[in-house]
Design a protein around this nucleic acid. Structure first.
Lengths: 153, 153
DNA sequence: TAGAATCTCTACTGTTTCACTCAAGTTTAT
DNA sequence: ATAAACTTGAGTGAAACAGTAGAGATTCTA
Protein backbone atom coordinates (compact mmCIF):
# COMPACT_ATOMS: atom_id res chain seq x y z
CA UNK A 1 0.00 0.00 0.00
CA UNK A 2 1.26 3.41 -0.96
CA UNK A 3 -0.91 6.40 -0.23
CA UNK A 4 -1.13 9.13 -2.84
CA UNK A 5 -1.80 12.70 -1.80
CA UNK A 6 -5.38 12.12 -2.85
CA UNK A 7 -5.72 9.19 -0.47
CA UNK A 8 -4.11 11.09 2.34
CA UNK A 9 -6.52 13.98 1.82
CA UNK A 10 -9.43 11.56 1.85
CA UNK A 11 -8.41 10.17 5.21
CA UNK A 12 -7.84 13.60 6.66
CA UNK A 13 -11.24 14.77 5.46
CA UNK A 14 -12.88 11.72 6.99
CA UNK A 15 -11.10 12.40 10.25
CA UNK A 16 -12.65 15.85 10.35
CA UNK A 17 -16.06 14.42 9.53
CA UNK A 18 -15.55 11.79 12.19
CA UNK A 19 -14.69 14.38 14.83
CA UNK A 20 -17.83 16.28 13.84
CA UNK A 21 -20.06 13.27 13.57
CA UNK A 22 -23.66 14.06 14.43
CA UNK A 23 -26.65 15.70 12.84
CA UNK A 24 -25.03 18.62 11.19
CA UNK A 25 -23.03 18.75 8.07
CA UNK A 26 -19.53 20.14 7.53
CA UNK A 27 -18.73 22.44 4.66
CA UNK A 28 -15.93 21.69 2.21
CA UNK A 29 -14.51 25.08 2.95
CA UNK A 30 -14.20 24.22 6.63
CA UNK A 31 -12.39 20.98 5.95
CA UNK A 32 -10.22 22.66 3.37
CA UNK A 33 -9.20 25.39 5.81
CA UNK A 34 -8.73 23.04 8.72
CA UNK A 35 -6.60 20.54 6.84
CA UNK A 36 -5.03 22.86 4.28
CA UNK A 37 -6.35 20.90 1.35
CA UNK A 38 -6.97 22.70 -1.99
CA UNK A 39 -10.72 23.21 -2.07
CA UNK A 40 -11.47 22.24 -5.65
CA UNK A 41 -9.41 19.13 -5.27
CA UNK A 42 -11.19 18.25 -2.05
CA UNK A 43 -14.55 18.65 -3.79
CA UNK A 44 -13.55 15.91 -6.18
CA UNK A 45 -12.39 13.63 -3.45
CA UNK A 46 -15.49 14.03 -1.30
CA UNK A 47 -17.66 13.44 -4.31
CA UNK A 48 -15.77 10.30 -4.94
CA UNK A 49 -16.23 9.16 -1.35
CA UNK A 50 -19.91 9.89 -1.76
CA UNK A 51 -20.19 7.60 -4.75
CA UNK A 52 -18.61 4.92 -2.57
CA UNK A 53 -21.32 5.41 0.04
CA UNK A 54 -18.80 6.46 2.65
CA UNK A 55 -20.01 10.01 2.91
CA UNK A 56 -23.28 11.80 2.17
CA UNK A 57 -24.00 15.37 1.28
CA UNK A 58 -26.51 18.09 1.65
CA UNK A 59 -26.69 20.66 -1.08
CA UNK A 60 -27.46 24.34 -1.11
CA UNK A 61 -26.79 27.00 1.44
CA UNK A 62 -25.87 25.41 4.75
CA UNK A 63 -24.98 22.31 2.80
CA UNK A 64 -21.96 20.13 3.35
CA UNK A 65 -20.83 16.61 4.06
CA UNK A 66 -21.28 14.07 6.79
CA UNK A 67 -20.34 10.45 7.22
CA UNK A 68 -22.87 8.12 5.65
CA UNK A 69 -22.35 5.53 8.36
CA UNK A 70 -21.23 5.43 11.94
CA UNK A 71 -17.50 6.16 12.26
CA UNK A 72 -17.15 2.72 13.77
CA UNK A 73 -18.33 1.17 10.52
CA UNK A 74 -15.89 2.86 8.20
CA UNK A 75 -12.57 1.08 7.99
CA UNK A 76 -9.43 2.58 6.54
CA UNK A 77 -9.27 -0.46 4.29
CA UNK A 78 -12.57 0.45 2.63
CA UNK A 79 -11.47 4.02 2.09
CA UNK A 80 -8.03 3.23 0.75
CA UNK A 81 -9.34 0.48 -1.48
CA UNK A 82 -11.82 2.85 -3.03
CA UNK A 83 -9.41 5.71 -3.54
CA UNK A 84 -6.18 3.90 -4.32
CA UNK A 85 -7.14 0.42 -5.39
CA UNK A 86 -5.27 -2.63 -4.13
CA UNK A 87 -3.74 -2.76 -0.69
CA UNK A 88 -1.33 -5.46 -1.84
CA UNK A 89 2.23 -4.56 -2.83
CA UNK A 90 1.85 -6.46 -6.10
CA UNK A 91 -1.41 -7.14 -7.85
CA UNK A 92 -0.81 -10.88 -8.15
CA UNK A 93 -1.46 -11.19 -4.40
CA UNK A 94 -4.44 -8.88 -4.32
CA UNK A 95 -7.80 -10.37 -3.47
CA UNK A 96 -10.00 -7.69 -4.98
CA UNK A 97 -7.72 -6.33 -7.66
CA UNK A 98 -5.96 -9.48 -8.71
CA UNK A 99 -3.97 -9.40 -11.92
CA UNK A 100 -1.79 -12.12 -13.26
CA UNK A 101 1.87 -11.31 -13.25
CA UNK A 102 4.45 -12.30 -15.83
CA UNK A 103 6.46 -14.68 -13.70
CA UNK A 104 6.98 -18.24 -14.95
CA UNK A 105 4.91 -19.99 -12.28
CA UNK A 106 2.83 -17.81 -10.05
CA UNK A 107 1.79 -20.56 -7.68
CA UNK A 108 5.40 -21.37 -6.90
CA UNK A 109 6.83 -17.89 -6.90
CA UNK A 110 8.69 -17.24 -3.64
CA UNK A 111 8.45 -13.49 -4.12
CA UNK A 112 4.71 -13.74 -4.35
CA UNK A 113 4.86 -15.87 -1.25
CA UNK A 114 6.55 -13.09 0.72
CA UNK A 115 4.30 -10.43 -0.75
CA UNK A 116 1.31 -12.35 0.50
CA UNK A 117 2.67 -11.98 4.01
CA UNK A 118 3.15 -8.28 3.48
CA UNK A 119 -0.36 -7.96 2.20
CA UNK A 120 -1.78 -9.83 5.18
CA UNK A 121 0.14 -7.67 7.61
CA UNK A 122 -1.13 -4.48 6.02
CA UNK A 123 -4.71 -5.67 5.67
CA UNK A 124 -4.79 -6.80 9.27
CA UNK A 125 -4.12 -3.25 10.39
CA UNK A 126 -6.20 -1.17 8.01
CA UNK A 127 -9.15 -3.50 8.18
CA UNK A 128 -9.24 -3.18 11.95
CA UNK A 129 -8.78 0.58 12.20
CA UNK A 130 -11.92 2.64 11.68
CA UNK A 131 -12.62 6.35 11.47
CA UNK A 132 -13.87 6.07 15.05
CA UNK A 133 -10.53 4.73 16.15
CA UNK A 134 -8.81 7.52 14.26
CA UNK A 135 -10.82 9.97 16.33
CA UNK A 136 -9.94 8.20 19.56
CA UNK A 137 -6.30 8.26 18.64
CA UNK A 138 -6.55 11.94 17.85
CA UNK A 139 -7.98 12.49 21.31
CA UNK A 140 -5.28 10.43 22.95
CA UNK A 141 -2.52 12.17 21.03
CA UNK A 142 -3.89 15.53 22.03
CA UNK A 143 -3.89 14.67 25.70
CA UNK A 144 -0.78 12.60 26.03
CA UNK A 145 2.56 14.26 26.17
CA UNK A 146 4.64 13.34 23.17
CA UNK A 147 6.66 10.24 23.67
CA UNK A 148 10.30 10.09 22.73
CA UNK A 149 9.45 7.55 20.09
CA UNK A 150 7.66 10.16 18.05
CA UNK A 151 10.95 11.78 17.30
CA UNK A 152 12.83 8.62 16.48
CA UNK A 153 10.38 6.77 14.33
CA UNK B 1 5.10 -0.32 -0.04
CA UNK B 2 3.96 -0.74 -3.61
CA UNK B 3 6.19 -2.62 -6.01
CA UNK B 4 6.54 -1.26 -9.53
CA UNK B 5 7.26 -3.61 -12.40
CA UNK B 6 10.84 -2.48 -12.17
CA UNK B 7 11.08 -3.54 -8.54
CA UNK B 8 9.43 -6.84 -9.24
CA UNK B 9 11.90 -7.52 -12.05
CA UNK B 10 14.76 -6.66 -9.73
CA UNK B 11 13.62 -9.21 -7.17
CA UNK B 12 13.08 -11.85 -9.78
CA UNK B 13 16.53 -11.26 -11.23
CA UNK B 14 18.06 -11.52 -7.77
CA UNK B 15 16.21 -14.75 -7.20
CA UNK B 16 17.82 -16.21 -10.31
CA UNK B 17 21.24 -14.95 -9.20
CA UNK B 18 20.60 -16.39 -5.76
CA UNK B 19 19.71 -19.79 -7.15
CA UNK B 20 22.92 -19.67 -9.20
CA UNK B 21 25.09 -18.30 -6.45
CA UNK B 22 28.70 -19.48 -6.75
CA UNK B 23 31.78 -18.67 -8.77
CA UNK B 24 30.26 -18.27 -12.16
CA UNK B 25 28.36 -15.39 -13.53
CA UNK B 26 24.89 -15.37 -15.13
CA UNK B 27 24.20 -13.61 -18.40
CA UNK B 28 21.47 -11.02 -18.72
CA UNK B 29 20.07 -12.98 -21.61
CA UNK B 30 19.65 -16.05 -19.40
CA UNK B 31 17.80 -14.13 -16.73
CA UNK B 32 15.74 -12.37 -19.35
CA UNK B 33 14.71 -15.66 -20.95
CA UNK B 34 14.11 -17.43 -17.66
CA UNK B 35 11.97 -14.69 -16.16
CA UNK B 36 10.52 -13.20 -19.31
CA UNK B 37 11.89 -9.76 -18.61
CA UNK B 38 12.61 -7.41 -21.54
CA UNK B 39 16.37 -7.59 -21.93
CA UNK B 40 17.18 -3.92 -22.44
CA UNK B 41 15.09 -3.02 -19.45
CA UNK B 42 16.76 -5.68 -17.35
CA UNK B 43 20.18 -4.28 -18.30
CA UNK B 44 19.18 -1.01 -16.71
CA UNK B 45 17.90 -2.63 -13.59
CA UNK B 46 20.94 -4.82 -13.04
CA UNK B 47 23.19 -1.85 -13.61
CA UNK B 48 21.22 -0.02 -11.00
CA UNK B 49 21.58 -2.89 -8.55
CA UNK B 50 25.28 -2.86 -9.28
CA UNK B 51 25.60 0.78 -8.32
CA UNK B 52 23.94 -0.16 -5.06
CA UNK B 53 26.56 -2.80 -4.40
CA UNK B 54 23.99 -5.57 -4.43
CA UNK B 55 25.26 -7.20 -7.56
CA UNK B 56 28.58 -7.27 -9.41
CA UNK B 57 29.41 -7.84 -13.04
CA UNK B 58 32.01 -9.29 -15.31
CA UNK B 59 32.32 -7.74 -18.74
CA UNK B 60 33.17 -9.13 -22.12
CA UNK B 61 32.45 -12.49 -23.60
CA UNK B 62 31.47 -14.94 -20.91
CA UNK B 63 30.51 -11.94 -18.81
CA UNK B 64 27.44 -11.57 -16.68
CA UNK B 65 26.20 -10.82 -13.20
CA UNK B 66 26.53 -12.38 -9.78
CA UNK B 67 25.48 -11.36 -6.29
CA UNK B 68 28.01 -9.05 -4.69
CA UNK B 69 27.36 -10.55 -1.25
CA UNK B 70 26.15 -13.80 0.19
CA UNK B 71 22.42 -14.29 -0.47
CA UNK B 72 21.95 -14.37 3.27
CA UNK B 73 23.20 -10.80 3.47
CA UNK B 74 20.86 -9.27 0.94
CA UNK B 75 17.50 -8.34 2.41
CA UNK B 76 14.44 -7.52 0.37
CA UNK B 77 14.27 -4.27 2.29
CA UNK B 78 17.64 -3.16 0.91
CA UNK B 79 16.63 -4.02 -2.63
CA UNK B 80 13.21 -2.41 -2.51
CA UNK B 81 14.55 0.69 -0.79
CA UNK B 82 17.11 1.16 -3.52
CA UNK B 83 14.76 0.56 -6.41
CA UNK B 84 11.52 2.03 -5.14
CA UNK B 85 12.46 4.36 -2.33
CA UNK B 86 10.48 4.43 0.89
CA UNK B 87 8.83 1.33 2.30
CA UNK B 88 6.41 3.48 4.26
CA UNK B 89 2.89 4.12 2.92
CA UNK B 90 3.35 7.87 3.42
CA UNK B 91 6.65 9.67 3.47
CA UNK B 92 5.98 11.41 6.77
CA UNK B 93 6.52 8.07 8.54
CA UNK B 94 9.53 7.03 6.52
CA UNK B 95 12.84 6.77 8.34
CA UNK B 96 15.15 7.08 5.37
CA UNK B 97 12.95 9.06 3.00
CA UNK B 98 11.16 11.30 5.43
CA UNK B 99 9.29 14.24 4.06
CA UNK B 100 7.11 16.61 5.97
CA UNK B 101 3.45 16.36 5.12
CA UNK B 102 0.96 19.18 4.97
CA UNK B 103 -1.17 18.19 7.94
CA UNK B 104 -1.73 20.71 10.73
CA UNK B 105 0.25 18.89 13.42
CA UNK B 106 2.28 15.94 12.33
CA UNK B 107 3.22 14.78 15.81
CA UNK B 108 -0.43 14.46 16.77
CA UNK B 109 -1.80 13.13 13.51
CA UNK B 110 -3.73 9.91 14.12
CA UNK B 111 -3.41 8.90 10.48
CA UNK B 112 0.33 9.13 10.73
CA UNK B 113 0.02 7.10 13.89
CA UNK B 114 -1.67 4.25 12.04
CA UNK B 115 0.67 4.52 9.08
CA UNK B 116 3.59 4.05 11.44
CA UNK B 117 2.13 0.70 12.41
CA UNK B 118 1.73 -0.24 8.78
CA UNK B 119 5.28 0.74 8.08
CA UNK B 120 6.56 -1.30 11.02
CA UNK B 121 4.62 -4.34 9.91
CA UNK B 122 6.01 -4.14 6.39
CA UNK B 123 9.57 -3.44 7.46
CA UNK B 124 9.51 -6.31 9.91
CA UNK B 125 8.89 -8.71 7.06
CA UNK B 126 11.08 -7.38 4.28
CA UNK B 127 13.99 -6.69 6.59
CA UNK B 128 13.96 -10.28 7.75
CA UNK B 129 13.58 -11.96 4.37
CA UNK B 130 16.79 -12.32 2.37
CA UNK B 131 17.58 -13.58 -1.10
CA UNK B 132 18.73 -16.79 0.57
CA UNK B 133 15.31 -17.23 2.13
CA UNK B 134 13.71 -16.54 -1.21
CA UNK B 135 15.72 -19.43 -2.62
CA UNK B 136 14.72 -21.70 0.24
CA UNK B 137 11.10 -20.82 -0.29
CA UNK B 138 11.45 -21.53 -3.98
CA UNK B 139 12.79 -24.95 -3.09
CA UNK B 140 10.00 -25.61 -0.63
CA UNK B 141 7.32 -24.47 -3.07
CA UNK B 142 8.73 -26.70 -5.74
CA UNK B 143 8.60 -29.77 -3.53
CA UNK B 144 5.43 -29.23 -1.59
CA UNK B 145 2.11 -29.95 -3.18
CA UNK B 146 0.09 -26.79 -3.59
CA UNK B 147 -2.05 -26.03 -0.61
CA UNK B 148 -5.66 -25.06 -1.02
CA UNK B 149 -4.80 -21.66 0.37
CA UNK B 150 -2.83 -20.84 -2.72
CA UNK B 151 -6.01 -20.69 -4.69
CA UNK B 152 -7.97 -18.69 -2.19
CA UNK B 153 -5.48 -16.06 -1.19
C1' DT C 1 -38.83 35.38 -5.03
C1' DA C 2 -34.05 37.03 -5.69
C1' DG C 3 -29.56 36.01 -4.47
C1' DA C 4 -25.81 33.95 -2.41
C1' DA C 5 -23.63 29.99 -0.77
C1' DT C 6 -23.23 25.53 -1.32
C1' DC C 7 -22.58 20.97 -3.75
C1' DT C 8 -22.23 18.58 -8.83
C1' DC C 9 -20.31 17.25 -13.02
C1' DT C 10 -17.21 17.27 -16.75
C1' DA C 11 -13.30 18.58 -18.80
C1' DC C 12 -8.80 20.29 -19.08
C1' DT C 13 -3.72 20.95 -18.06
C1' DG C 14 1.01 20.81 -16.81
C1' DT C 15 4.22 17.71 -14.56
C1' DT C 16 6.10 13.54 -13.36
C1' DT C 17 6.60 8.66 -13.43
C1' DC C 18 6.63 4.35 -15.86
C1' DA C 19 8.13 0.90 -18.78
C1' DC C 20 10.55 0.42 -22.07
C1' DT C 21 13.69 1.17 -26.48
C1' DC C 22 17.82 2.73 -28.99
C1' DA C 23 22.45 3.82 -30.22
C1' DA C 24 27.02 3.89 -29.60
C1' DG C 25 30.57 2.53 -26.72
C1' DT C 26 33.93 -0.60 -23.91
C1' DT C 27 35.65 -5.01 -22.45
C1' DT C 28 37.20 -9.68 -22.96
C1' DA C 29 37.43 -14.86 -24.37
C1' DT C 30 38.65 -17.37 -28.33
C1' DA D 1 40.00 -9.91 -35.31
C1' DT D 2 35.64 -10.84 -33.95
C1' DA D 3 31.68 -11.63 -31.59
C1' DA D 4 29.38 -11.70 -27.43
C1' DA D 5 28.86 -9.68 -23.48
C1' DC D 6 28.25 -5.41 -20.20
C1' DT D 7 27.99 0.29 -20.05
C1' DT D 8 26.14 4.69 -20.55
C1' DG D 9 23.09 8.12 -21.70
C1' DA D 10 19.41 9.59 -24.07
C1' DG D 11 14.75 9.28 -25.98
C1' DT D 12 9.69 8.10 -26.15
C1' DG D 13 4.78 7.17 -25.77
C1' DA D 14 1.32 6.39 -22.43
C1' DA D 15 -0.55 6.79 -18.07
C1' DA D 16 -1.06 8.65 -13.49
C1' DC D 17 -0.93 12.58 -10.50
C1' DA D 18 -2.28 16.86 -8.46
C1' DG D 19 -4.57 20.00 -9.18
C1' DT D 20 -7.67 24.02 -11.87
C1' DA D 21 -11.70 25.82 -14.33
C1' DG D 22 -16.36 26.60 -15.64
C1' DA D 23 -21.03 25.99 -15.89
C1' DG D 24 -24.86 24.07 -13.59
C1' DA D 25 -28.17 22.49 -9.86
C1' DT D 26 -29.92 23.01 -5.17
C1' DT D 27 -31.43 25.24 -1.09
C1' DC D 28 -31.44 28.55 2.78
C1' DT D 29 -32.41 33.27 3.93
C1' DA D 30 -33.84 37.89 3.48
Amino acid sequence: MKLSVRGEYALRALLVLGLNYGDHVVRIQTISDDQKIPKRFLEQILNDLKSAGIVESKRGLAGGYRLARHPRDITLAAVVRHIEGALAPVSCVSERYYEKCSCPDETRCPIRNVMKEVREAVVKIVERVTVAELCERAQRLKEEPLSALDYII
